[in-house]
Amino acid sequence: MAFFNTPEQRKAGFRLTFIACLVAVIVLGMGVFTRLADAGLGCPDWPTCYGHVLWPNEDHEVARANEAYPDTPVEHDKTWPEMIHRYLASSLGLFTIGILVFSLRSREPKQPVKLPMFLLGFIILQGMFGMWTVTLKLWPQVVTAHLLGGFTTLSLLWLLTLRLNNFHWQIPAIAEDKLKAIRPLAVIGLLIVVIQIALGGWTTSNYADIACPDFPTCQGAWLPPMNFAEGFNITQHIGPNYLGGTMDNAARVAIHFSHRVGAIVTAAYLIFLAIKLCGLSLAAAKKLAVAIVVVLTAQISLGISNVVFHFPIDVAVAHNLVGALLLLTQVTTTYFVYTAAVNRGGIRV
């Protein structure tokens, strides 16, 4: 059976929600590009950019902006990514309002309403984190939370898409016990991927990407000098500006090394989960297991390529986007194993 239901079987707002998911991917990618291009402070004020709705472009506008913000002069290669990211992110709020209107006006049974309402509130909160990212000068705690908020927004939109798609697995009765056993395993897989993404966010927000410029060793050693206490000190005070990072090398190595170890744990567990999915005697579950392994392989390859090719920005952006795709595979797995129905006739779907 195809993954997507026929239009007659879907619930109201499916297409709009699916489009919103695609927009969220673009927003996430643009946000990552902005961060990796060191354009997070490309506009030192919020919500405008040097007081402009877009950004200063004319010579007299640039001169006036430089006079108003002498500590952060205009850099044209950093202003436009920041503002485009802001406007794209704002558009998600409009999409969510439209989705909520569809839900409230629908007469269909079990039409999701609470999730669109929560999504709208969460996107507003995410906008606040975007503001704090600028006003608190790239404070790592806020930058990491903002990144996780972007992944969460995409995940919630995808979850809503799945619910509006109104498609459920039909599990043969013989696999019912396996289905029950795999449910907590799916949740654990989701949590592991979230933790790994958080580690990745903490790595980039503290500029620890290049702390280990070699692979598979780090700083030429399997266990280089590391300072975990400083590397994971989330109570650090708000400084004047975190552009470029403030931690010493040992602390950054500890962060980067932890992210690598997390990648090993994540890979091992998701392969284990994929094997369990194959045991459900369901064609759709096997296809999802293959998808998990394929996306996981791509993510590991991109992570290694980041180091080998000295962190090119296009590879780094792709690494983040495939990480988001890996997260969506876990959202999908968790959704399907918890909403699956047991087919007593033993028909395979």
Rank of each mutant, 00 (worst) to 15 (best):
33 F>P: 09
33 F>R: 10
36 L>A: 10
37 A>I: 02
38 D>F: 02
39 A>T: 11
40 G>Y: 05
40 G>K: 05
41 L>S: 04
46 W>L: 13
50 Y>H: 11
50 Y>T: 12
51 G>C: 06
51 G>I: 03
51 G>S: 07
52 H>V: 05
54 L>I: 08
57 N>A: 08
60 H>R: 12
62 V>H: 03
62 V>T: 01
62 V>Y: 02
64 R>H: 11
64 R>Q: 14
65 A>C: 12
66 N>G: 13
68 A>G: 04
69 Y>P: 00
72 T>Q: 14
72 T>L: 10
73 P>N: 09
74 V>A: 06
74 V>N: 04
75 E>D: 13
83 M>V: 15
85 H>Y: 01
86 R>S: 01
87 Y>H: 00
89 A>M: 03
89 A>Y: 00
90 S>M: 13
91 S>A: 11
91 S>N: 06
91 S>D: 05
94 L>I: 14
96 T>R: 00
97 I>K: 00
98 G>R: 02
99 I>E: 02
99 I>Q: 01
99 I>D: 00
99 I>N: 01
99 I>A: 02
101 V>F: 08
106 S>D: 08
106 S>A: 15
107 R>V: 04
111 Q>R: 06
111 Q>E: 12
111 Q>N: 07
111 Q>D: 10
114 K>N: 10
114 K>S: 15
116 P>G: 12
118 F>D: 11
119 L>G: 10
119 L>T: 08
